[in-house]
Structure formats: structure tokens, C-alpha cells
Design a protein around this nucleic acid. Structure first.
Ligand SMILES: NC(=O)c1ccc[n+]([C@@H]2O[C@H](COP(=O)([O-])OP(=O)(O)OC[C@H]3O[C@@H](n4cnc5c(N)ncnc54)[C@H](O)[C@@H]3O)[C@@H](O)[C@H]2O)c1
Ligand SMILES: NC(=O)c1ccc[n+]([C@@H]2O[C@H](COP(=O)([O-])OP(=O)(O)OC[C@H]3O[C@@H](n4cnc5c(N)ncnc54)[C@H](O)[C@@H]3O)[C@@H](O)[C@H]2O)c1
Lengths: 256, 256
DNA sequence: CGCGATTTGTGCACGTCTTCACAAGCGCCT
DNA sequence: AGGCGCTTGTGAAGACGTGCACAAATCGCG
């Protein structure tokens, strides 16, 4: 039933290329730093301070420094970080030095948008294949890629090394698709269908659920409305909101 | 604690839902419970145990009980939770008892998919208006809604009470759109553009960034590849992966 | 060469989140 | 009625994440 942790890890003798073992929270922020760094590089900056990069990425500068310190010491005290070097390091840690192939299953409403999105290629990913179960959609060409039938998945996966599978089918089909992806060796899945997926150990699933995001926003709307309606403290109850909303990922403003 | 007959007997006159001040991590999970509960209700279940609901939602049962305990005591020991009652309570806490209106700005590739998505209406949201800056797109009708020019935002917002703004424009336009949304009184924004938004205090921003999700998956792929390549601990290194990946939100398998 | 200005890297304290473990409560069966 | 099995709700402990504050390191300049 429940998984037990191993308190003492088996001997970690070899410290060869510093298998980093980053905190998950840090991993989740590295892509943001990377985007900010690319923006800075494009605008001609060669170095950047933790304060500057933290601003560009929308985080606390101490947090940013701690995050980066987990990768090693790539900054220079009194100067800051070399933008190009830091990009290189983060991309290396994230495994973006090779272009990863993505298979997209479910070329419907959402799948079409994803297939036509150019933001993948610019960030180290390549959509390698499109799949759908609807015969009417099979054969359609999107962005130079032909939609194949989902039954061909194993054949196509054998030709190309698929790194990540994206599921954009209705929820009722998602588990079956996940099983098929796992069967052809995919160990990372991004799921847009609103359902939980069961996958074997060693397979990572991340999900994106629109409605959940909206409902979280709804909660805060509701709370804000309750506060302003309450007669307790007068009008300016809003300014009494706690600044730090942590948890999943909520930005709260910082003006200048 | 459990008052089935006379709700709100003790204490003050108004049987107010007590403004619970939930932990953010809990708020982020309530929508998942809600979805699981709706599925259970559709399949005829009248009650469900914490174990059963936790399974359906893909979380630990202790965590689920603690989350629900923050809303009050709506379970019955030895029996479980009443599905219908729990749905009602969670929807009440999330502010979903009223249908919230959403304004979508940027009806391009992604915006089209969002506008045509029926998963909003079924979960308590209504797309109230579509906006774009491109004159070629203004006037187009999607799902019975006409795309308006973004300059009309303030006029339309005056007619309808917009609860949430969704930004699906290119990144370079996102900040300006956010400013316009804030200007017409929107205090909750869902941002699909890959950039950080500056908004005044009291405005909540949540973002959805595809590339970030893929890059996080890429990191784990990279790590798994390193592990299997390492001769240190033999072949079955994968099975030694820690079960609990917490942080943002990664499901890891539980088969059977 | 030394000094001050600047910025990194991190020890530490604090808050949040997770998980275990178990008493209290509930319904059913005898 | 009483006991028994099942389930909730929660205290406590530990893991994890955050942010302050400061020593150590570096650069530029007189
Ligand atoms: N459209 C959106 O904006 C949006 C937003 C958030 C979430 N989602 C979710 O994303 C998923 C897709 O949404 P959509 O609007 O594109 O739906 P859609 O119905 O337009 O597209 C689904 C596609 O999946 C295909 N499909 C069905 N079963 C399949 C299978 N077994 N194998 C392969 N392909 C299969 C269908 O043929 C169809 O083309 C849904 O789960 C939806 O809830 C969509
Ligand atoms: N397409 C995807 O699958 C996808 C996935 C992830 C993220 N995104 C992000 O979502 C955003 C939209 O992507 P897209 O593929 O739909 O781009 P798109 O270019 O197809 O659509 C953008 C739309 O926004 C409109 N627009 C531009 N400036 C505007 C303004 N100031 N006010 C109102 N409307 C304006 C444009 O006219 C266009 O219709 C981008 O930031 C993109 O990075 C897209």
C-alpha cells in the first residue's frame, strides 16, 4: 500500500558528475530562470545579479541564490552571474542539451492548438508525431506533420525515440492512452485530460487542468469578496492580505 | 459538531460558513476532490470513505482527511462522507455556488481551443466575452460568442460582472492586457503567456506554462537516464526511486 | 596595496506541508 | 445492551521550503 522511504540511502560512493539531487521546488523554478535568462541574453546582458534575475523571474532573490547554489557555484561575488554560462548550466541540469521528442495523442480542439504551437521548438522540444483515434482526423496534416492512427504508436515509437508523451484526449480515453504510451517505453507524460492516471513506478505524470486553476482563482475571489463585505475592518481589508501565497504557484504583485 | 437538524444553532445569529482560512495546499486539492466526487455521484455512490475518495483523487488518505477537516466535520465515523453533502460544502467554500463569468483575451491558436472548450460550463464557469486586437478576428463567432475588439473591454465589463480574466495573447502583449483587465476591476487572472505579470496587490495571477511542464519532465527523464546508466547500484535503480515527489504536483504511480 | 562597494553563498530560524498513529465515534450484529 | 469492526478527525513529529542576515569573496580605484 503505502511506500516507505529508505532512511539511509544505499551507499552513494561515486560522486562522479555530481548527480545533483535537487529539491523539487527548485526544479520547478529552473525553467523560469531559464526563460528570464534567455530574455536577458536577447537584450544584450552579459551578466546579471541575483536581484536582477530574481526580478525578471518574479521570485525572491534569496530563493534564487539558494536554488542556483544547488547547481554549484557559477556566480562571481561582487559581479553576478554570467548569463551565457548560467543558461548552459541550467539547460544541462534539465537535460535540454539534446532536443527531446514529444508525441501528442489526441488532435482535437486542444491538440490542434498544441500541435501548432511554436513555443516547443524554441525551448528544446520537437513534436515528433501526432496520433488520434478518429479515422476522420487521421491523415490530416498540421504544421508539416501527418496525424497517424493511435494504433501505429508502437511502430512509430520504434523508429523515433519518444521522450515525452502528451495526452489531449477526452478523459475517458486518457488511461488507455497512458497505458499505450507506457507500453512503448514512454516514462514521462503530460496529461491535459481531467482525470488521474495510474502508471507504473518510474513513470512521471504531470497534469494541466484548466478548471482546477479557475476554481482556485474562484476561491480567492470568494475570499476577497467575503473580506470586503465583512464590517469588521472597514474598506481597506484588501491591503491586509498576507503577501506570501505559497503552495502551488501564485504570483502576487510587486510593483516597482 | 454534527448537526443535521438545526444548522447553526449555537453562536451568532448568521449561520455564516465561518471564513475558514484554508492552507493554500488544501485549496489547490479541493478541486480534485470535487471532480472525483462528481464522478462518484454519477456512478451512483451515496457515500465514500476517505480511502476511496483519496484513491479516486490520487492522494494520500490522511492528507485528504486533514484537508476536509479544515472545512468542518462533514464525515460520519465508521461510515464515510456523504457524497452530495461534501460536493455542496466544497463548492460553497470554493465560491462555485454562483456561476462565474470569464473573459478571454487573445483568440488565436490557443484561445480558439479554450473558447470552444465545454469543460468550463460543466464546472461552474461561463465564458462571457472574447477579445482580440486583430481586426481580422473581431466579429468572428465562436460557440455562439462574437469576438470583440479589446478596446471594448471596459464597455463590456461594465455590462457584465467579469470574475476572472484569461490571457492567451503572445507574451509581449500580456502585460498590457493584464493592465487593462485590472483597470476594469478584474482581480483574478489566468495567464497562458510565458512571462511574469506585474499586478497590484490584491490581484491574483496564476499561470499555465506548457514549456515549463515539459522541462520539468525533461529533468526527470534526464535523471532517470543518469541513474540507469550508472553502474553504481545495479540494474534495478529505478525501483529505488523515492516514492514521494511533492513540490508542485507530480503524480507517481500506484498500480493495483 | 589596501579599502570600500558590491554581490554571492549559506547558516539559521521559522512557517508550511505531509505522514503516521491512535483515540473517539458510529453502526451493525449478536 | 454490549461488543466489535470500521472510519473519521487530529496531535505530534518530521520533512520540506522560505527568507533573513551576514561572512566570504571579488572588483575597481585611489
Ligand atoms: N479544449 C480546451 O481548451 C481544453 C482545456 C483544458 C482541458 N482540456 C482537456 O483536453 C482534452 C482534449 O480536449 P479537446 O477540447 O481537444 O477535446 P476534443 O474532443 O476536441 O479532442 C479529443 C480528441 O481525442 C481523440 N481521441 C479520442 N479517443 C482517443 C484515443 N483513445 N486515442 C487517441 N485519440 C483519441 C478524438 O478523436 C479527438 O480528436 C479533454 O480531456 C479536455 O477535457 C481541453
Ligand atoms: N498554442 C498553444 O498550444 C500554446 C501553448 C502554451 C502556451 N501558449 C501561449 O499562449 C499564448 C497564445 O498562443 P497562441 O498559439 O494562441 O498564439 P496566436 O498568435 O495564435 O494567438 C495570439 C492572439 O492574441 C491576439 N493578440 C495579440 N495582441 C493582443 C492584444 N494586445 N490584445 C488582445 N489580443 C491580442 C492576436 O491577434 C492573436 O489572435 C502565447 O503566449 C503562447 O506562448 C500557447
Amino acid at each position: 500500500m503505502s511506500q516507505h522511504r529508505h532512511p539511509g540511502a544505499p551507499g552513494r560512493a561515486g560522486a562522479v558528475p555530481t548527480l545533483p539531487d535537487l529539491p523539487e521546488a527548485t526544479v520547478a523554478r529552473l525553467p523560469e530562470y531559464l526563460r528570464a535568462l534567455h530574455n536577458l541574453a536577447d537584450s544584450g546582458h552579459e551578466t546579471v545579479s541575483s536581484e536582477g534575475l530574481a526580478n525578471a523571474a518574479g521570485v525572491n532573490s534569496a530563493k534564487l541564490r539558494k536554488d542556483l547554489s544547488h547547481l554549484g557555484s557559477y556566480g562571481t561575488r561582487g559581479v553576478g552571474y554570467d548569463v551565457a554560462l548560467l543558461i548552459e548550466q541550467i539547460e544541462s541540469v534539465l537535460g535540454l542539451t539534446q532536443c527531446r521528442s514529444v508525441a501528442l495523442v489526441g488532435v482535437g480542439n486542444l491538440g490542434h492548438a498544441l500541435a501548432g504551437y511554436d513555443g516547443f521548438a524554441t525551448r528544446g522540444f520537437r513534436i515528433a508525431a501526432l496520433f488520434d483515434a478518429d479515422p476522420a482526423r487521421v491523415g490530416e496534416e498540421i504544421n508539416g506533420l501527418v496525424v497517424r492512427h493511435v494504433d501505429e504508436l508502437s511502430r512509430v515509437a520504434a523508429e523515433q525515440l519518444i521522450s515525452i508523451g502528451v495526452i489531449a484526449t477526452p478523459a475517458r480515453a486518457a488511461q488507455a492512452v497512458a497505458d499505450q504510451l507506457v507500453a512503448v517505453g514512454v516514462t514521462s507524460i503530460l496529461n491535459f485530460a481531467p482525470c488521474v492516471l495510474s502508471v507504473p513506478e518510474g513513470v512521471d505524470v504531470r497534469k494541466v487542468d484548466l478548471a482546477i486553476e479557475l476554481q482556485i482563482l474562484s476561491f480567492h475571489e470568494h475570499r476577497k469578496a467575503s473580506l470586503t463585505a465583512l464590517p469588521g475592518t472597514a474598506g481597506s481589508a484588501l491591503t491586509a492580505l498576507p503577501g506570501g501565497l505559497a503552495a502551488t504557484d501564485t504570483q502576487e504583485a510587486i510593483g516597482t
